[in-house]
Amino acid sequence: MTEGLIDNTGASVTVELDIADPVSSYTVSLADGPPVGRADFVDSPGAAADRIFFHTEVDQEFGGRGLAGLLVRAALADSISKNLTVVPVCPLFARHLRTHGDEFVANGGVFRLPTPTDIALVTRVTRSGA
């Protein structure tokens, strides 16, 4: 999906989209290796084109390399390209959009604050897997 990214150490990084039901993820990998981080999301059911990001993590041994930031930026860029509204439940996404939200919107992105319905959806799918 997104190639040509470079982490803080100069290593080549790839971000890929892994669609699953009900929880999908963007994953980050170094070179051609296995994923070392992920940003989990659910898409709102029905007509709304909302992508609710609720959890982001990078394996501890790869911390400090800027991988989480690369992952967030790639996921947000993909959301723009798919005309999705981003709903940042994940603190990392929320912090990024607080800081860079104007830039995200200027690039064509749309985001909104999470509602109790969004939180209930995330809670339901992460507890039951459905």
Rank of each mutant, 00 (worst) to 15 (best):
T2P: 00
G4T: 02
G4W: 03
G4S: 04
G4P: 08
L5R: 02
I6R: 11
I6M: 09
T9L: 14
G10I: 11
A11Y: 01
A11G: 09
E16G: 02
E16M: 01
S25G: 00
T27S: 04
V28Y: 05
L30W: 02
A31S: 12
D32L: 02
G33W: 06
G33R: 02
P34Q: 13
A39M: 06
V42C: 07
A48R: 14
R51P: 13
H55T: 02
D59L: 13
E61N: 11
E61L: 07
G63R: 12
L67G: 01
L70K: 04
V72C: 03
A74S: 15
A74G: 11
A75K: 01
A77H: 11
D78Y: 05
S79T: 10
S81N: 14
K82R: 15
T85Y: 03
V86E: 00
P91Y: 08
P91A: 06
F93I: 14
A94L: 07
A94R: 13
R95G: 13
H96N: 12
R98A: 14
T99G: 08
H100Q: 12
D102A: 13
F104T: 05
V105Q: 09
G109P: 12
F111R: 05
L113I: 05
L113M: 12
P114I: 09
P114C: 07
I119M: 15
I119R: 13
V122Q: 05
V122Y: 05
T123E: 15
R124N: 13
T126K: 06
R127V: 13
S128Y: 11
S128P: 00
